[in-house]
Amino acid sequence: MSILSIESLFVRYGGITALNGVSVEVRQGETVLLIGSNGAGKSSLINAVTGLVSTSGGRILFEGRDLAGIPSAARSRLGIGYSPEGRRVFRSLTVRENVLSSTLGLSRAAAEENFAWACSIFPLLAERAGQPANQLSGGEQQIVALARAVSTLPKLLLLDEPFLGLAPVWIDRISDAIRELQRRGTTILMTEQMARPALKLVDRAYVMRGGEVRRSGDVAEIREEALAEEYL
């Protein structure tokens, strides 16, 4: 069953059409990649799902429910976790506070339990718990953004360019973190420009360009095409 169905979605910013009738499916338990170069419309699609950008056509169904008119905060509480492009950790908050910031809808006990759970996946969090997030490196901030997104135990994790600007060693570490989340049953929709590390993590991929899906398929099919294109 599809946990997320995006049907013929349009997003416009003034005169610019960022998404031009895009359809994407994510099924329970799988990891799906949106791949495309800068400006392809990946973030617009992710943020149409989080509710941070408004759509001008099409439908987004989450667990069969139309998200139209549901505010961003309520979508998070329905079970949509989100790690933004560029990480955007809360800079003046500590690492622990960042991870707890998304748990307002949970009981205190559940929030603390989930923080401990996040620390078990990402040991860095426990080591740096009291440190302001703006003192961390980009890779460390990505871990914090991931932990913040999963500390509510979301049904669907949206991951916008987790490798952006990171050194290879951090790309490996973030990849390991994503695999750990997959082992624990997390359903993921992620975006990337970097095909090589991203394709290792996912079941299926959609190739986007100019606000449209150009191709889609399982990893074996996409890998060859992507390698032939300039996304590498």
Binding site: L52, A73, S76, Y82, L93, S101, S102, R108
Partner: peptide
């Protein structure tokens, strides 16, 4: 308190705070 965390998160980055389940309303 977590309420205070939410307040400061909102002051830091409003849109991201909303996306993390913090309701401006």
């Amino acid at each position: 308190t977590r309420y205070g965390i939410a307040l400061r998160a909102m002051a830091d980055d409003g849109p991201v705070a909303r996306s993390q389940g913090i309701p401006p309303a």
